[in-house]
């Protein structure tokens, strides 16, 4: 069907990866209950992972028929620098969230990415980041009481103190 479009860089590697992953999951699905019964907990998982493996192999066959030559390169069309940076930034966010806390981590995350991508002034980046964090904090933390990790900012105590002040004023 689409055999005249050339293979994209890395496509073959990704294809082999999904076949390997499917096979691994199929093996694991077999391990849930074996061929115990039609109604076993492993029955449907075995069918789905089996189907994944089968499709993976068919896709591989289609891929191998495609011409391998392409003008695209990995560094430009598949994993350009901004994508790598962003994936790294999200990972860093997840790692830092517990020790540093929600407010500082989010602020740094936004500031870094906005500054990097937009190349605008620091003033613009800082105010955009701070404003967005404030908005998200109000919606999630104050309105919906989603307790984000506090980290180095003792926000729980600060909120309680503010609450006390207002409480006292009443």
């Amino acid at each position: 069907m689409q055999s005249n479009t050339p293979r994209r860089p890395g496509e073959l590697g990704f294809n082999l990866f999904i076949i390997a992953a499917s096979l691994f999951l199929l093996y694991h699905a077999y391990g849930i209950a074996g061929f115990d019964a039609l109604s076993s907990a492993g029955a449907v998982p075995m069918v789905t992972t089996g189907l994944m493996t089968l499709c993976g192999v068919i896709i591989l066959r289609q891929n191998l028929r495609k011409p391998g030559k392409t003008a695209e390169t990995i560094s430009r069309d598949i994993l350009p620098l901004p994508v790598i940076v962003t994936i790294a930034a999200i990972t860093a966010y997840a790692v830092l969230l517990k020790p540093l806390g929600f407010v500082p981590t989010s602020f740094l995350f936004l500031l870094g990415l906005i500054k990097l991508f937009s190349a605008r002034s620091w003033g613009f980046s800082i105010s955009a980041a701070a404003g967005s964090v404030a908005l998200i904090y109000i919606i999630f933390r104050l309105v919906f009481s989603v307790l984000m990790p506090a980290g180095i900012v003792p926000e729980g105590e600060i909120l309680a103190a503010i609450g006390h002040l207002f409480g006292a004023a009443k």
């Binding site: 009481s145 307790l147 729980g156 105590e157 909120l159 309680a160 103190a161 006390h164």
Partner: peptide, 15 residues
């Protein structure tokens, strides 16, 4: 000055 007044449990929201 505010800390001692708050130190009594519960000093913040309980999860």
């Amino acid at each position: 000055t505010t800390l001692p007044a708050l130190a009594e449990y519960p000093e913040k929201e309980i999860q």
